[in-house]
Design a protein around this nucleic acid. Sequence first.
DNA 1: TTGAAAGCGGTACCAT
DNA 2: ATGGTACCGCTTTCAA
Lengths: 356, 356
Amino acid sequence: MDQNPPRSPSVTVADVACKAGVSKATAARVLGGYGTVSDHVRDAVTAAARALDYQPNELARSMTTGRSGTIGVVVGDIENPFFSLAMRGITDVARQTGFTVILINSGEDAATEKSAIRTLLAKRVDGLIVSPAKESDADHLREAARSGRPLVLLDRGSETLDIDTVIADDRHAAEGITRRLIALGHRRIAYITACDTPEHRFRTPADINTGSVRRRIEGFLDVCLEAGLEDMEDWVHVGAVTPEHTHRIATVMLKSSRRPTAVIASDSVIGLEVFKVCRELGLTIPNDLSLVSFHDADWTSVTTPPVTVVRQPVYGLGEAAAKLLVERLNGNTAKATRVVLKTEVVERASVAAAPT
Amino acid sequence: MDQNPPRSPSVTVADVACKAGVSKATAARVLGGYGTVSDHVRDAVTAAARALDYQPNELARSMTTGRSGTIGVVVGDIENPFFSLAMRGITDVARQTGFTVILINSGEDAATEKSAIRTLLAKRVDGLIVSPAKESDADHLREAARSGRPLVLLDRGSETLDIDTVIADDRHAAEGITRRLIALGHRRIAYITACDTPEHRFRTPADINTGSVRRRIEGFLDVCLEAGLEDMEDWVHVGAVTPEHTHRIATVMLKSSRRPTAVIASDSVIGLEVFKVCRELGLTIPNDLSLVSFHDADWTSVTTPPVTVVRQPVYGLGEAAAKLLVERLNGNTAKATRVVLKTEVVERASVAAAPT
DNA sequence: TTGAAAGCGGTACCAT
DNA sequence: ATGGTACCGCTTTCAA
């Protein structure tokens, strides 16, 4: 009985107003749900809108209100379970609070991140959540902060930046597991991270541009020093940026005559690869090698042996960041906060006393 | 020397034009990179823009051009490795082609999905990629398609819908693994999926609203029938929507006196949970139970034994969907395509002959 | 309660 | 090559 509604150049408030026999302003009031309208008129406009299949144009609305109802998120790699879980936390909060999320992958590349932020700002997002690849050049972060739109740093962020930040207590976690390993007699403890340095080798924590990782390494080195272990810097391996890189690094390391007796993996993707290399090399965990990984990824509990991990409240990290951002969006102008969430070591069976 | 640039109510083309001593139209031309301008004027405008720290407003641009440079993506759950990997494929293509991605999680809920699409359409995304939770009521999909903005269905999509779709050859994969299990002597083969039916029990594939899963179950049942196995419908378990649900279902199933000798898990999250339950119950894989899972998740290769999986080209699925969408955006108006990507069975060690 | 009209920040057409 | 100006679709004074 009714034809296919003519869906050409989109129905506007003016059209609805016309059909309802009222002014544009009135129609806009009922359609936009603001101002006061008589019931009679409201019904007429609503009916007209339905008849015409009116679809509001958020873009136009954003133009005048200055708010887009959108938050921009920049992460290193959405494929990484860490980020996808944090993202879940962010999107959940966003939906609950009526926001929508624009996601951009930086690939952990500073230049891409920079342009991502520009793009997001140009699209007039109301706020930003960024997990900065490098903290060294943070100009674009400052710029974003100055743009007037709130910015929250996720999992990373330098102490020097006066910006809202949500992180886990990585340093504390690293100290804990390092102490535990040392207590078990380990002296040759390796730390493997994706973060790279210009020379592809590690000298000092200052070389590490990723806050969360830097803090972990500092904790690791401090505890080692405290225990009288020196030159542990040599045991820090950088550049495990892809599974292939990690595979190469782990293989060389574990084939070495002076191979470590324990390995700390900076994330679950690296931990998984180290686990695989052990298998290939016929190394038994935990007899030949103890393994601890950051991030309680799903696979860590089903391997043989299951692996001991640092459980980070990843979902909570995303959730907290989003909540903090929404507060700012709602006018909270208190000075920059630094939210630090607790981690927890989940002891499983991949850690044992050092081989004698 | 220069003060903090006054960042209040954003700099516009008019401001730049004024400062550069040209008209708004001219300034817009150089800022927008269209039309023709003399080098002299271009430099002046560029300089003025930099001095004022001009930031273009994409919203305003979108208003007049009608294109937002944005594509909307609706998936069931970004936390699921399947979707996060597909998302990676999508975002990579988007970035390469100059688009930006808005992500909404439907939580596999039809109502949420519906409103997500409305929201996205209201935000005037240029196109949509949706992984529909249910195919039964696809009105919102039709509506989206009719809105004039291209829509591509990801991993799911019914044959009856005349909409671009990118899927894997799930049916073929299911047939292959079912044949293999039967050849190994299995007769009691269970299939576990997250898809649910109103009565929380399975009767016929027609009850399954998720295309990819329905095709798999059809393949499974057909091959069983072909082999003379009847009433295999009883071995299909639905409702494994969360790890907790899966745990319950798998426990009941595997504790039963007439427990299956083989299990097919419809995704890696379910497969992982079944694996865990086997451990808890002291069931040895593959001696007591053979296990096959869809999705070659990272953990499947490091368990003991490693598990046999159906490898789906997940990244490729996202990539193909995004490419198809971009083509449409570039004016390709050929009739709706159905891209089917090949799967591959990765034989590992979780499948053996049925216990005698 | 309702209507008229001025923007929001660009784009694009039409003159000059 | 440049300037003037009418939109895009909605919100928001300000009057009536």
